[in-house]
Design a protein around this nucleic acid. Structure first.
Lengths: 237, 237
DNA sequence: GAGTGGTCTAGACCACCCC
DNA sequence: GGGTGGTCTAGACCACTCC
């Protein structure tokens, strides 16, 4: 592991343990950290940059670096965020997958455009429900081009698609784009998420890309409006 | 302006003008940019980091840097994003503000907790509607502590709160935290956004901080579900 | 073997805040 | 005037990919 990541991890654990509350949430100067970790200042800065990105600290030029107030936020949603917003597959603990349907389809115009393939090119259509402690939270509908992800089977769905893509197909995931909107519940939502037709759902539309720039997944996840929050953090340029 | 930002701006404009499509979307090596801009490699990297953050390029170690495919995305929502997700005040073009109410209130527990003040400390309550080409898009309810932002008047509301905070009070905005959820429309939403009680709204809850770490704004914006998208971009670590 | 981005060093100067 | 973070330099070695 690179040195800057080790420094980042060390400082993060200190911050979460209120290590710097004694000094009014002010961190030591960057040069102090250089001594402590025996490294150059650029490396310290790199580590602190990660903490800023994560919203754990902020910097004030000519004054110092400080722990963000109220680091004690709703961390209980992190599990969901990491699984659904990031790349990691659902696997841990009480989260379960239920496959509602798994079909081969001809892609329509919208799907073809998103996945950068031709209309009528074959795609998998996967509809799954994610349950937490037996309760349905999310309905996910995914389209994947057969040409990019060959050999998908129901068995793989029940384990992890991402593990199949990375470990068996030796492809690498790169990035994703998401669009978040609200919508009225569809009949499918009502049936699978056990909600009423008048309930709203939070919709996350995502296109995910391999490291080659090829899109491999176009998905819509419908979240129960009472069970999901999307959190975001922004720092001024 | 620092050199790395100039390089960033130059490359960004090239990318948006498809300058690198001739070379299969591959950018020149970092050392090439060092020569072109007469600077060290760290400075070039800094500029490229900004482009990666913005989702305009991605890097492949040992291979090069590449323009992200489909940079041609739904840029039509950028105006809204910048105004509501970021810090800049609404001022340009066809966007209008309508102040529905502006009151002084005693803060309740929820507001006090978010703004890190005592219960019953005075806050402004501001309810505004944002209109685009005369059509209501967003209902915004904001709480601001009087102790932090003194002297707010209806006149200032009709211009720009942020400009007042920065230029008149000489305070600096630092960062914000957002939580996005879906909800059922409230009666107020229906009246001001001209929607039906069965329509969903997209709710963005935000706490914004000064550069001192002091929270100065706690707001809820209700977006018409058919008129708003929140876009996000993630790159794998 | 050449090329590439990832990491890192050991300095440097600056503008500005706070004392 | 001392301390701070912002920026920048001119190198360096590494691991890996691609040819």
């Amino acid at each position: 592991m690179p040195k800057y990541k080790e420094i980042y991890a060390t400082l993060k654990s200190r911050i979460l343990n209120d290590y710097y509350s004694k000094t009014n949430n002010k961190l030591p100067a960057e040069t102090m950290f250089c001594e402590e970790f025996s490294c150059s200042r650029m490396t310290v800065k790199h580590a602190l940059d990660l903490l800023v990105e994560e919203g754990l600290i902020y910097r004030r030029p000519k004054q110092g670096s400080f722990v963000m107030p109220q680091v004690n936020t709703d961390m209980n949603f992190d599990l969901l965020d990491k699984n659904l917003i990031g790349f990691t597959a659902v696997s841990k603990g009480m989260v379960q997958n239920k496959v509602v349907s798994f079909e081969l389809r001809f892609s329509d115009e919208q799907v073809a455009h998103a996945l950068n393939i031709a209309v009528d090119d074959p795609v998998y259509y996967i509809c799954r429900v994610r349950l937490i402690r037996e309760a349905p939270y999310i309905l996910e509908q995914t389209y994947m081009p057969v040409s990019v992800i060959p050999g998908l089977t129901p068995d793989i769905l029940n384990r992890s698609i991402y593990s199949y893509i990375e470990n068996d197909l030796h492809l690498k995931l790169q990035s994703s784009k998401k669009i978040i909107t609200a919508a009225k519940a569809t009949p499918l939502d009502c049936r699978e998420l056990l909600i009423e037709p008048t309930d709203p759902v939070l919709v996350v539309e995502q296109i995910a890309y391999l490291n080659t720039g090829v899109p491999f997944e176009y998905s819509f996840t419908h979240h129960r409006y009472d069970k999901f929050k999307f959190t975001s953090y922004a720092v001024r340029n």
